[in-house]
Structure formats: C-alpha cells, structure tokens
Simulated scan of single mutants.
Amino acid sequence: MSIVKEFKDFASRGNVVDLAVGVIIGAAFGKIVTSLVNDIIMPPLGMLLSGIDFKDLKYVLKPAVGKTPETAINYGLFINNIIDFVIVAFCIFLIVKGVNSLRKEEAAAPAPDPAPTKEETLLTEIRDLLAKK
C-alpha cells in the first residue's frame, strides 16, 4: 500500500475529522475564555484589590538600561493564565459530565427481550430431554 493511500485512509477516518473539529472549536473557545478573564473578570477583581491590574504585576530582576529591555518575572500574567485554565477546565468538566450522563441513560435502558425463535425453542426442548436421560 502506498504512503499516499495510507495517509488518505488515516485522514478520512471519522475520529481524525472529529479531532480536527474539536481542536478548532477548542481554540476559538480558548479565545472567548481569555477575553472573559481579561476583559470581564480581572478588572472588577483588580478594583476590589485596590486598583491592581494583574497584567502589571511583575518582579523586576534587572531594570531596563538604555535600549536593553528589563528582565522581569510576570507573575500577574501567570495568574491570568491560571484563571483561564480553571474556567476552561470547569467548562470541559461540565461538557464531559453531560455527555456521560447521556451515555448512562442509554446504557440503563435495557433492550427488550426478544421472544425465542422456533429453532431456539426446539433446541431447548432437545437439551431438556437429553438432560433427563
């Protein structure tokens, strides 16, 4: 089998397409959550904390000298990213929980027991007769 045909078979599988759609939607969802954190959650939180803007929180290791930029640890941006992660993780948790509850409902509904066919009934009778002998 040629490598082109193998790649075509791989790429045309349903799981690969589903994964690609999931990654694209996940990236868009990440942008929405980042905007939610940066534009809606952090400003009131900063206001409650005496007007602190988390983006500006940093520990300067070496101040800027001339054209050389400062070297700093931007822990405020890290806090923003942690909040982003927590929100995304919680949303994914809710989605997975919803999907799992739907699957449990499907699995809990037992399939109706079909009536035995004539062959099954005959074989059962033969088995019972052989067991008596």
Rank of each mutant, 00 (worst) to 15 (best):
L19P: 11
F85D: 10
K5G: 13
S50E: 09
K5W: 15
I41F: 06
I87K: 05
N100R: 15
K58T: 01
K58A: 10
E125W: 09
V16F: 05
V16D: 02
I87Y: 06
D18V: 01
D53G: 08
D56S: 12
N38T: 02
P43K: 01
V33S: 06
N38A: 07
S50H: 12
D18W: 03
E120H: 00
V65C: 14
A115C: 07
V17M: 02
V88E: 05
A107T: 05
A28H: 03
P44K: 08
T71P: 10
A20Q: 03
V17K: 01
I73R: 07
I95S: 05
F93Q: 12
L123P: 09
F54R: 04
L122S: 02
F10S: 04
D56V: 10
K5Y: 15
V21M: 01
I87F: 08
D53I: 08
C91N: 11
I95P: 03
P110Q: 02
T68E: 15
P69S: 15
L102A: 12
A111P: 00
V88F: 09
A108M: 08
P63H: 09
P110Y: 07
I24P: 02
P43L: 01
I87L: 05
K31T: 00
T117F: 01
G46Y: 04
T68L: 15
F54K: 07
L19N: 04
D9M: 12
D9W: 12
K67D: 15
L102V: 15
E119D: 13
K5R: 15
A108L: 11
L77Q: 14
L49Q: 09
P114Y: 02
I87S: 07
S35A: 03
E119R: 06
G46V: 04
A27V: 04
V60Y: 02
E6A: 15
L77R: 12
V88Y: 00
Y59T: 00
K67W: 14
I92C: 00
D113Y: 03
P110I: 09
I40W: 11
Y75T: 00
L77A: 12
P112M: 05
T68W: 11
I82F: 10
F10P: 02
F85W: 10
K97R: 14
I126R: 02
I83E: 07
L129S: 08
K104S: 13
S101Y: 10
K118W: 11
F7R: 06
N100S: 14
I126P: 05
G26W: 07
T117Q: 11
I25T: 07
